[in-house]
């Protein structure tokens, strides 16, 4: 078992919010991912053992949700909203500016490990479109020429 004492403490705390250990699995994955950025096969196996859930079951949930990462990601996650409100307000131009600034396409991580760029469905910020998120910060509306400054704020 590779969990640190702090991870065990956090896992035990969230397990207490659910009627059984199994039901805590989705939140437990978020807790481990928050510290490690992504879930390796080993991390998933350890989590399965700790919760009494098979790895297959855990991976079934992990690969269903788009916010559980089963491959390494960068220090910051960039999400560009591609839903129809943002699409009609300049998504294509915003996406092109983000890809040019980072030098990577959707699903890729910058070479320095700083950013991973991912598509996202509606961010619920249609009145601020075109919108994007960097980690837990919502930005919008974002003009293409603002992209460099926004991303420059994340080291």
């Amino acid at each position: 078992m590779s969990f640190s004492d702090e991870e065990i403490r956090q896992l035990d705390a969230i397990i207490g919010h659910y009627p059984d250990r199994r039901a805590a699995a989705a939140t437990a994955m978020r807790v481990v991912q928050a510290r490690r950025r992504w879930l390796s096969d080993d991390a998933l196996a350890d989590l399965g053992e700790y919760l009494g859930v098979t790895v297959a079951e855990l991976d079934g949930i992990a690969t269903f949700g788009n916010m559980v990462f089963r491959k390494p990601v960068g220090r910051h996650i960039v999400l560009v909203c591609d839903s129809f409100a943002c699409w009609s307000l300049g998504y294509a131009e915003l996406r092109a500016a983000v890809e040019a600034e980072l030098g990577v396409g959707m699903g890729q991580t910058t070479e320095d490990g700083r950013f991973t760029l991912l598509p996202i469905v509606c961010l619920g910020a249609c009145d601020r479109g075109p919108a994007m998120m960097v980690d837990d910060h919502l930005h919008g509306p974002v003009a293409p020429d603002q992209v460099a400054e926004i991303l420059g704020g994340y080291s």
Partner: peptide
């Protein structure tokens, strides 16, 4: 500009699993 942008990067590198 949607068309090439939507297809080119995906062909080079598959999007992350589960994303």
């Amino acid at each position: 500009s949607d068309a090439p942008a939507a297809e080119a990067p995906a062909a080079e590198a598959p999007v992350l699993e589960g994303t």
